[in-house]
Amino acid sequence: MVAHSIFFYTFSLIAIISAIMVTVSKNTVHSVFFLILDFISISCLFIMIGAEFLGMIMLIVYVGAVAVLFLFVVMMLNVAQQKNQWFSARESSKHIPVGIIVSVIIFFELIIVIGGWKYKPDLVTAMSLTIDNDISNTHSIGYVLYTDYIHIFQLSGMILLVAMIGAIVLTFRQRSGVKRQSYFSQISREKSDGVEIIEVQQKKGVNVDD
């Protein structure tokens, strides 16, 4: 149990510190790297409470794909040179009221969630499903996700699909004059339509532009 708590506090400390560093660090690329560290330590925490499937999926989806794209955008935009001036800049002080509103809303949401969990514990046990300890949590997630919550699951898939199509439609531009490679026309090209053999008359030549 001692080892367990040592690991727990190590990972949570790394998670909290790196989450703070994401907002504080001056270099944007460093922020993304701290974000990645945050994701990794949170997935370690997931694994520690026995949710190894969620932890690994978190690692694959967030760290392996989403954060790579973040890093891509940040590196390409070349914002690394602009120093992240935190409160000093007048530009960013305009956004402070919005930030305060958002954080107050999140704070009250957290109070509601934690309060409900603290003062009405029977609510959670009444809602949650019976846990079968014989099967791994990957199987149990599958059983729940594809039976009881199939509609919500499908709906979230549809939302993602719509978002994807929307992003493609917004950025799609029909460009003219793009030369594309077509394997079929390359392979199906015959000698007869590429080369023409002409008997060249002496001192008359051939008119090429025909």
Binding site: F53, M56, V63, A65, V68, M75, N137
Partner: peptide, 20 residues
């Protein structure tokens, strides 16, 4: 481990960070 193949996949997808 229970999720061995996911672990392999996750670690190999992290490999891109060294290069970037």
């Amino acid at each position: 481990i229970n999720v061995g193949i996911l672990y392999l996949f996750a670690v190999s997808s992290l490999g891109v960070y060294g290069i970037i």
